[in-house]
Amino acid sequence: MASQGTKRSYEQMETDGERQNATEIRASVGKMIDGIGRFYIQMCTELKLSDYEGRLIQNSLTIERMVLSAFDERRNKYLEEHPSAGKDPKKTGGPIYKRVDRKWMRELVLYDKEEIRRIWRQANNGDDATAGLTHMMIWHSNLNDTTYQRTRALVRTGMDPRMCSLMQGSTLPRRSGAAGAAVKGVGTMVMELIRMIKRGINDRNFWRGENGRKTRSAYERMCNILKGKFQTAAQRAMMDQVRESRNPGNAEIEDLIFLARSALILRGSVAHKSCLPACVYGPAVASGYDFEKEGYSLVGIDPFKLLQNSQVYSLIRPNENPAHKSQLVWMACNSAAFEDLRVLSFIRGTKVSPRGKLSTRGVQIASNENMDAMESSTLELRSRYWAIRTRSGGNTNQQRASAGQISVQPAFSVQRNLPFDKPTIMAAFTGNTEGRTSDMRAEIIRMMEGAKPEEMSFQGRGVFELSDERAANPIVPSFDMSNEGSYFFGDNAEEYDN
């Protein structure tokens, strides 16, 4: 993207840094990872977990959730003011799984939030270390993106479920800051804005008074975040219109849905970061690795190297396929839920299948599930090659597409044709070009129609051997075009429920 120079890199967003050079960025990201790792080690000690239990991804998720809940100030305040039966607002906890007599047992633990905050700050040299908290939120978000298709949420806001490739980060909490905003897809931002506008339509006082002023500035800020994701002048001009509207209503909703559809071809720039579970960072720190000293990046080879040398386990339900569970977590670790499966298959070195073909449910185990038949197995999170994460949407291309997802959002900077089903997408653009945004709409449609099938995206960008740390010898991959490109292809993934 041309304006790259004016933006802070995501590592800076990730670490609240002012302008830093590459070495400083690597050190501050490393410091953040160190903090998460030290916190995780301490929690495993508190909970008396064995090494194996500490490497269980379900335990990692519970521990991450506990610290996120302990620092969720708004919710904590709300819980104190609106006490609900049987919930102690000062405590947080969740299921911890232990191996007892050759069987997995679930144990519900409860801790004072104050105590968890103390352990977290102690692991982070006394700081609140917001960057580390956001990092864990993005890992949870990436896992949700890989596990669930947001059909219901899309339909509720009037969008087409086939636009799911635009929904990265749709389950990120509001408090995820600049680093969170960077990884949100165009569809996620559109959905947040539509929800806001709908509230304004239904509630006369939404934009009024002292609160209304705050609401208005939040609305304009979200519009600017979305505008910054678009790469064409016409899309940005249309966002200006939406932002400046005196009284946002149905016309703005129409414009936003139009823009979301246009992003299936004229893709937005959305950041991709490899955020790993805390149970990967903990053992690495415990083994003596100093992330701050060595430096770390979320968008280069580092996460690949770390996963190459990590042992992570997962509980497996009786009829689940461990290899499929591994694929789910591998995609989440690489922030690749909406990437082209052919690119992923090449990088991973084994075939990556669409969601609907995987015999696996989510990673988390519900409290009512029976533990008797639970097994555990090693997650295979290694890769054959590594590639640089991208934040450009890439230019655009036609490809055989599917009944489910009709476009992709690249996660890796790797040369390819970008699949999208042009006739299906263009069919949504018939007729409606009147109104105050008509010239911009016409211009956007013209650009979409001009998108050429034979153009290559990320020209000359390749993948790298894991021994090639400096990215000196790019390998331009070859793809098996007979395979499906979309992950949520004609899909039956479970729906995400809060």
Rank of each mutant, 00 (worst) to 15 (best):
G35C: 10
G37I: 03
V476K: 12
L226K: 13
R389S: 13
R38H: 02
A153F: 12
S176A: 13
H82D: 01
T350W: 05
A129H: 00
S245A: 01
W120K: 08
T151D: 07
L276F: 12
T134P: 01
D145M: 10
R213L: 03
A387Q: 08
Q149Y: 07
A286G: 00
G431T: 00
N483D: 15
L381I: 15
G349E: 14
E244S: 01
S170F: 05
R175Y: 10
S478A: 02
V190S: 00
E64D: 05
A153H: 13
N142S: 03
V408T: 00
A284K: 07
V312M: 12
V109A: 07
G490S: 08
A153P: 05
G228A: 05
G86L: 13
A27C: 13
V190E: 08
T396H: 05
S274K: 10
R195K: 14
G54V: 13
E252I: 11
M137Y: 10
M163I: 03
A336T: 09
S50G: 03
K198R: 02
I425V: 13
S60R: 03
R152T: 01
S367G: 00
D421P: 08
E380I: 08
S359A: 00
K87D: 12
M238C: 06
R208D: 10
E192H: 08
I225A: 09
I225M: 15
F479P: 15
A27N: 07
F258N: 10
K103E: 14
F464S: 13
S392P: 03
H135Y: 06
K103L: 01
K98W: 09
E454R: 04
Y97W: 11
E46C: 02
G490D: 11
D340Q: 04
Y289E: 07
V280Q: 12
A27Y: 03
E107C: 12
Q399M: 04
A366Y: 10
I475T: 09
M440D: 01
R317K: 04
D240W: 12
R382H: 05
I41S: 01
R75W: 14
S383H: 15
R243Y: 08
R118M: 10
R348V: 07
N142D: 13
R99I: 02
S438P: 09
S326E: 11
L418G: 08
R243E: 07
G177F: 06
I475Q: 09
